[in-house]
Every structure is written in structure tokens, then in C-alpha cells.
């Protein structure tokens, strides 16, 4: 079971979190024209990297904040966690 450092609450067991997918995907702006290719990329296309992956988790059984987690998808090593407003290098 992963041990995830919530930037708001500290180290907590994976049980308290819910996975939210790739954190680097950016939703096209609301009320702006978007090509169907860009839209489809946003909705469907995801990389499935082996190695470092920046992803979203929500601390659902804690502070309910969405957070960013940089994790190695092969080893589960977590390099960094951050608030969604912060950047992960």
C-alpha cells in the first residue's frame, strides 16, 4: 500500500486517496473554440509511461483536496507531491 504525502495533511495511507489520472492534461478553456482533434486528445488520449508520471489523487477520506503526485509507475516510488496549484519539476 502506497504512503502518500498530502501537502495539506502529511503522510497518509493510500486507502484515504482516490486516483484521478494524468495531472498534465489541460482542459481546453470554457467558451473557446476547440478543434475536434484537440478535444479528442483531451478526452481520450493518455500516455501510459513506464517510469515517472505526474498524476492526480484526491484525498477523499481526508481534506478532500485534489493533489499532484509524481510516481514511478513501475516501482511505485513517489518522488514528489504538491498542491494542484504548484508545479512539479
Amino acid at each position: 500500500m502506497l504512503y502518500i504525502k498530502c501537502p495539506y495533511c502529511g503522510l497518509r495511507a493510500q486507502k484515504e486517496f482516490s486516483y484521478g489520472g494524468d495531472a498534465t492534461v489541460k482542459r481546453p478553456n470554457i467558451n473557446e473554440e476547440v478543434s475536434s482533434e484537440d478535444w479528442d486528445n483531451f478526452v481520450y488520449m493518455r500516455k501510459s509511461p513506464r517510469g515517472k508520471h505526474i498524476e492526480l489523487w484526491q484525498h477523499i477520506a481526508g481534506c478532500r483536496q485534489w493533489i499532484k503526485v509524481q510516481r514511478d509507475t513501475a516501482t511505485h516510488e513517489i518522488f514528489q507531491t504538491a498542491k494542484v496549484t504548484e508545479e512539479i519539476r
Partner: peptide, 17 residues
């Protein structure tokens, strides 16, 4: 109920803060 709450939180915290 739980999914919708997470959904709303997602947009408020990440997409349209």
C-alpha cells in the same frame, strides 16, 4: 452522490480555481 461531489471539487480546485 459521492462521485458528483468529487467531480465538482475537481473542476473547482483544478480547472476553474
Amino acid at each position: 452522490a459521492a462521485n458528483v461531489l468529487s467531480h465538482l471539487e475537481y473542476y473547482l480546485q483544478i480547472v476553474w480555481p
